[in-house]
Design a binder for these strands. Structure first.
Lengths: 250, 250
DNA sequence: ACTTGGTAGACTGTCTACCAAGTGCTATGA
DNA sequence: TCATAGCACTTGGTAGACAGTCTACCAAGT
């Protein structure tokens, strides 16, 4: 499950674009593999990541692993301590909050620009996503719901036409997805109602309204997170530092 | 691209823990050196960067240079072409525009949060910076003006208390500073008047006003940039591809 | 019991060397 | 003139080596 298939596995190529061969740099694949493992919990928070270990685990040499780790560090997935190595980032108490606040700003602005620029096809696509998402939600398919949600948000930022916003938002979204998957189910129906209103505002070209709805939407998400925290972890006994766990054989 | 540097710099350290200086990894120094060289024009836009060349230039081996180049690529300072090398990024026509738009969103939100959280000392610091900046401006010290301007903006984002906003804004600011230094002088006095109003709004805790002033402020900057473009390059003869210039001199 | 000193092992950071494959340039040939 | 074959150069990736540093652990001294 851990070996990197440089292969074109996830063939989401737009039809007709036949990349004769895609020599994706190894570091890229390693990066993807590691984020995935972090998100799905294979690599627990606080765990010490050892280069050679990862390297042999993924069937590559140290170099690509190093490069991937450095990128992960830059993007806040792991913390690199000089001379010691990388630990999977352990999110601070207030971090999710700040993350969602940043997301609110980025996506709200994106929504505003999307309302300004969206074409008919764009709007149609958003409508479709809304429909699919609602269906997933009603069917209780959490994974599908989360995925469609992410797709909708990313589509909207994409439509802002601003590559920096797209870029930052993508980063933030990915992090949010990590911290926060457990929250998603909570506010299913309401979330999709808001999405619908948002898409309408965009289709009407009502910039202010789109921006405002998106802001409130993200804000609701934040509230939901806090409520979950409050109920789920009254005190949090601070799980005894998984920090320096190593297999100490014989 | 882009990164969230979770570096230990933004010390949210528990009071009293003063980590002594930790030997900076070489790649870090290389990264700094290269951005500096890009900003100050030593490495012109479009120039082909060769790893071994940079390595010997900086007195290190290929490895740290590679790692630095990858980071520069992620953050949009250079473009990495597989199998060929890195070229110093040549900003596209609309790129500055998008950059400033993103900045508007980020800094506007920061200003809002700063207005919410700023302490008395914070406000005092901002006032001081305004005074210094205005003085520089009146004295015609462009370098000082630009520096103080950057410091003021970065102080405000810092006061937002949101590390993600701080981080993104820092990145954007650095890029803006690169693209755009020539514009700065143009709108000196007006800029500092706006700064003063902004600081007042923050000190009053008027979130909406602070956000709005910051947005307009950035917007003015964007306009100024466009006006400069319009006058300075009526047609832009598209300087004969600095792309593949190499020292081929006899 | 607590501190100090020493030891050992594990990793990173960096360097060197090497090779395969891809890219751009150039000179050759039709 | 235009295609093309060949060449020089550069990256991407691998392997191995070594110093410095970090952690843990043990032993002796206070």
């Amino acid at each position: 499950m851990t070996t990197i298939s440089a292969g074109p596995g996830a063939g989401a190529e737009p039809a007709g674009v036949r990349h004769v061969k895609r020599p994706t740099p190894l570091r890229e694949s390693v990066y993807e593999a590691l984020t995935e493992m972090i998100i799905d919990g294979t690599l627990e928070r606080g765990r010490h990541l050892v280069e050679v270990e990862l390297a042999s685990m993924l069937g590559v040499s140290r170099q690509p692993v190093r490069e991937a780790l450095q990128r992960l560090n830059n993007e806040g997935w792991v913390d690199l301590r000089p001379g010691f190595g990388a630990m999977v980032h352990v999110p601070a108490e207030d971090e999710v909050d700040q993350l969602l606040a940043a997301r609110a700003a980025l996506e709200s602005e994106s929504a505003r620009l999307a309302a300004r620029h969206a074409s008919k096809e764009d709007v149609a696509k958003l409508r479709e996503l809304c429909k699919v998402g609602t269906a997933y939600q009603e069917a209780g398919d959490i994974d599908g719901t989360v995925r469609t949600n992410a797709e909708l948000h990313s589509s909207i930022t994409q439509m802002s036409g601003n590559r920096f916003l797209v870029d930052f938002a993508a980063q933030v979204d990915r992090r949010v997805r990590w911290y926060y998957t457990p929250v998603a189910p909570m506010r299913g129906a309401a979330s999709w109602r808001e999405h619908n209103r948002l898409v309408k505002a965009i289709s009407d070209g009502d910039e202010d309204k789109a921006a405002q709805i998106m802001r409130e939407h993200t804000e609701h998400t934040r509230k939901a997170y806090h409520e979950l925290q409050a109920t789920a972890e009254p005190v949090e006994p601070a799980e005894p530092a998984a920090a320096t766990r190593r297999r100490r054989r014989s």
